[in-house]
Design a protein around this nucleic acid. Sequence first.
DNA 1: TTGTATGCGTTATCAT
DNA 2: ATGATAACGCATACAA
Lengths: 332, 332
Amino acid sequence: MAASIKDVAREAGVSIATVSRVLNDVDVVNEETKKRVLSAIKKLGYRPNIVARSLKTQKTRTIGIIVPDISNQFYPEIVRGAEDVANIYDYNIMLCNTDLNIEKEMEYLKVLKEKMSDGVLYMSNSLEPKILELIKQLQLPMVLVETTSKEDDIPSVTIDNEKAAYDGITYLIKKGNRNIAYIGAGEDTVNASAMRYKGYRRALQENNLELNKDRVYFSSPKAKDGYKGINEILNKTKIDSIFCTSDEIAIGAINALRDKGIKVPEDIDVMGFNNIYLSSIFYPKLTTVAQPIYDMGSVGMRMLIKLINKQELEERNYVLLHELIERDSCKK
Amino acid sequence: MAASIKDVAREAGVSIATVSRVLNDVDVVNEETKKRVLSAIKKLGYRPNIVARSLKTQKTRTIGIIVPDISNQFYPEIVRGAEDVANIYDYNIMLCNTDLNIEKEMEYLKVLKEKMSDGVLYMSNSLEPKILELIKQLQLPMVLVETTSKEDDIPSVTIDNEKAAYDGITYLIKKGNRNIAYIGAGEDTVNASAMRYKGYRRALQENNLELNKDRVYFSSPKAKDGYKGINEILNKTKIDSIFCTSDEIAIGAINALRDKGIKVPEDIDVMGFNNIYLSSIFYPKLTTVAQPIYDMGSVGMRMLIKLINKQELEERNYVLLHELIERDSCKK
DNA sequence: TTGTATGCGTTATCAT
DNA sequence: ATGATAACGCATACAA
């Protein structure tokens, strides 16, 4: 068994209280005894047992991160941003993959509470009533990333998805495109990306362009859906450009076009969304609406830590800035 | 404050011992009182405090995963495989990014011990003496993934990297290639991938092909290094094919070739390594040596859990099977 | 400045 | 079948 505070106390010839004091650098303790304690600690290779400390202090310095799938999309980078900040403040993170399965989400939330996580960073599509109720009941400090809570006011960090899509479409229109297809997140999606379709429609409307449902294909953010989407759309109508709500969709779309002998961007413009690493090394390099992915994680974690420490949040619903990145998949 | 076992006991009119018994389904407890306890639990919305339980049982049911960078390479998928298995056995995972920084690795190892993790899954390049010493001292159950420990016998899961590279090169040779470039992990790399260069040399040798250092470029596994590598190599000599020790390198290489007007695979064959998701949607689709990435995580976690439960490992150094996946970046 | 004692929420041993 | 209680390792209020 590893050495405990008792062993250190015995070795240094003091009480455990004194050892605890030097451990936590609290109260005043005689320089001489402090030295004795320190050397006893070193001699025994003692490390405080954080579990015991947590039981006493009711704080574990670990934070749960609930994520749909760490092997997917931009979640790795969000998590990285979050962990970096957590690390700075001496927190560790517990990673939980849910596959957007409500039952799994609820299970993890409960476990996180039982393990006394100090808070949770939550990413999901939906915030179903069942989940919301559980969250309230559990009383865990929480912030939403890339997810919004509508009426209920759980702090969140997102981008302005409606505006981001609007900006992307406007760009396409300015380049002379008129028949702009849309592939990706639908209105029913409950997470933040649902607003993108709204932005698409507003941009069309403000430019007196007609909304043609034949050019719209709602789907998951995967490449294969981009591929399928293009084929479906081209069967029905003509287009001069495509707005995709993820870079993977854009890649799938470009692959489909290539298979049909259609060139990007010579024949058709394709715009992605998110600016994942991939989009800068794909050919052609993707023009895309960038989300500050890493920052969403780091800002979210910063907010959460403030929340945990009962500090005031200057902004409960943080909206980070998106940016249109011009590369090679749209005509210059 | 959340309800504790005491509250439940009071509510049900029994002792905490009895509550604990029904909680853990241990000993025999009267059906009648069991019901009372259960309903008290429900009424109070009681959840056991796992931290307290951990202090008592000396087990936390959480496992640390030490990884260079979750936002990089195939680590997300390894971690996903690991978490899925952990989840099955009711373990949670603590994610730690080290950027291959030794100090960070040591720090995390210590914290993991202090927080009483039941074990750790360790991914790194090196197993420096300092680390090895700390590992021994900490006495944490551990398994290495995509990392080997040479003399010290820490259980591990890898593929046969030498053979995998050998198979890749042999394939290239069979397709008629004679001047095969190599870009990627060098011999000095201490992790498993260092063996790939060995496989490259052996394949050349067995086919009476000369090893020409001008065709070899040691680098990190990033795309930009593939790009740079090609330019350096083509400045010095002629090649008909390229073996890359990561898919990202292969992509960088293909991009460099395209910029020079060289076609893949018509002019030059390019082979990747790992078979990350990307390689199946890139154009051209990458012919690559596949590692069973997800499985490395899941198998590693399975081994670790066995280790934690003091079960016998049928194989301490698990070697998973690689597979050559023929796609479009090499001539058919 | 230092020590004693209590409690954090459990599990498990020993009585009853 | 159930209850009282010690112990897990630490932090801290209170005494000295």
